[in-house]
Design a protein around this nucleic acid. Structure first.
Length: 468
RNA sequence: GGCGUGGUGGCAGAGUGGUCUAAUGCGCGGGAUUGCAAAUCCCGUAUUUCGUCGGUUCGAAUCCGACCCACGCCUCCA
């Protein structure tokens, strides 16, 4: 069974197959590194991560490229405001982004090109477009793509005659000299506020336009025609439309064969926005006591083609779910004879039988239906919990495969060792209980709680855990 | 205004013509257990019901139409 995904270009489900028969070339529009990415950004990246995992775990290798936008209006403006060089500024936020990705258990793309490191490739692309008559230099010194010269424009977003319906309010100073409102910048002429962040080109000093980097870098690493391109739904127009135009006008071949877009995350029923104060970052949620794996769980709990309403309540639901899975994993691990956990790479090549977890994986292959996959996982979990002896040894690897596909890390059960002072209190309480001194016992339990530990009585003893 | 998505139980969220008296999770209620709890386990949890009104069909949450509502995109944006 192949992975199928909704293709924006054809508005239909398509099999994801590598054109070269070997591996899928996969390009994702990455973050602009000028601030911490918010959970909306991460919804998209997490979905793309699951896409890659599902493909790899079903035996198809993926070459994953995700760019870093490290030169644009925002990075330049904010770095200047903060008195930092563009390089040190974007390096800082890149590092922050990588830390968040690691915390959220995102596989690192094999290639993560930065726009500023690929100026030459972008200039080359502009030159080829100029040579073919698809681009022109305007009076302001900037170079624009002539949308009119590319008849297929609008095919992805199904928007015709954009320039007729676009209001003039959006027109800003640096776009004044375009022949048509829908023409977009390939090269932006240097302006005083750019500071030192300008590069030499055949059209004078300046910097590349935003859309260009993705074309230049995706084609550099994946070739002029590749398999899959993905991004947030808002990128469909104009970003991806422009990418297609400038790439195909240049090469004459299909740019990406398939496109999929992730619908936006909502918070408390509304779009995230600064004014509503609902733009969470991972760090902010961690400060509220949530764990990254819980955030990941909450982000994948809805289908990627629908709005997902992210709330703190939805985050809270993640913890008991993950704990339940951790218990299930422990049981299956035991049933399997406590083997070493197979690595992700080993699972991709060995592709073990999944037992009761097969329907969950199949749900994933069908347009990344994560909610249904989770439902299937819990259905299997319920069966095994009801009849623990019915668990088969191979179901351990089955569960591991689905957990890897979803990228879910499970909490370790009872892994935290209590400090001596805490254990001493617990010992006192054990003694009090032995003497049936319930008053003292309860008092000690309160004391422990105040110190951040919860105590659970078990046969002949106790277990200590940090408060949830 | 143009384009688009969706309205399913307290919440989240599957289900896209019959097996739906609607998956799954959270929550909630009850029980077991416990000195009392916690943790764990068990049971129950949408009173033909899936925004409203019509239509197609032997049969619809699923198809069609109208309407109401919510949300998104329309060159900053995952």
């Amino acid at each position: 069974m192949n992975l199928r995904i909704h293709d924006t270009l054809t508005d239909s489900l398509q099999d994801v197959l590598p054109a070269d028969g070997k591996r899928v070339g996969f390009y994702c529009c990455g973050p602009t590194v000028y601030a911490a990415a918010h959970i909306g950004n991460f919804r998209t990246f997490v979905v793309q991560d699951i896409f890659r995992r599902a493909l790899e775990l079903s035996g198809t290798p993926v070459k994953h490229v995700r760019n870093l936008t490290n030169v644009d209006d925002k990075t330049i403006r904010v770095s200047q405001e903060q008195g930092q060089s563009l390089g040190e500024f974007t390096a800082f936020w890149t590092e922050k982004f990588h830390a968040d990705c690691e915390a959220l258990n995102l596989l690192r793309p094999q290639i993560e090109p930065g726009a500023v490191e690929h100026i030459a490739e972008q200039i080359d692309l502009i030159q080829r477009l100029m040579d073919k008559g698809h681009a022109y230099q305007a009076g302001d010194g900037s170079v624009y793509f002539r949308v009119e010269s590319f008849p297929a424009y609008g095919r992805l977003s199904r928007v015709q005659d954009r320039e007729l319906t676009t209001g003039t309010a959006a027109q800003s100073d640096d776009e004044y000299d375009r022949d048509s409102l829908s023409d977009f910048a390939l090269w932006k002429a240097a302006k005083p506020e750019d500071g030192p962040n300008v590069w030499e080109s055949p059209w004078g000093r300046g910097r590349p336009g935003w859309h260009l980097e993705c074309s230049a870098m995706s084609m550099k690493y994946l070739g002029p025609s590749f398999d899959v391109h993905s991004g947030g739904i808002d990128l469909t127009f104009p970003h991806h439309e422009n990418e297609i135009a400038q790439s195909e006008a240049c090469t004459g071949v299909t740019f990406s064969r398939l496109w999929f877009h992730v619908v936006h995350l909502m918070v408390d029923g509304h779009k995230m926005s600064k004014s509503l104060g609902n733009m969470y970052t991972l760090e902010e949620l961690q400060a509220k006591g949530f764990r990254p794996e819980e955030v990941r769980y909450a982000l994948i709990a809805g289908h990627y083609r629908k709005h997902l309403n992210f709330t703190l309540a939805s985050l809270e639901a993640a913890r008991p779910n993950l704990q339940r899975l951790a218990k299930l994993e422990k049981h299956l691990h035991h049933v399997a004879g406590s083997p070493k956990r197979p690595s992700y790479g080993a699972l991709c090549t060995s592709r073990p039988a999944l037992g009761r977890f097969a329907p969950a994986f199949e749900a994933l292959l069908e347009n990344l239906n994560v909610p249904r996959a989770l439902g299937e996982v819990f259905k299997a979990a319920g069966e095994i919990e009801k009849a623990p002896q019915s668990a088969k040894p191979e179901e351990y690897s089955g569960l591991i495969v689905i957990l890897e596909a979803l990228g879910l890390r499970l909490p370790e059960l009872g892994a935290v060792e209590a400090p001596g002072e805490i254990r001493a209190l617990a010992e006192q309480r054990l003694e009090a209980r032995a003497n049936k001194d319930w008053g003292k016992s309860d008092e000690l339990r309160d004391q422990l709680a105040a110190l951040g530990w919860s105590i659970k009585d078990v046969k002949g003893g106790y277990e200590l855990e940090p408060n949830a």
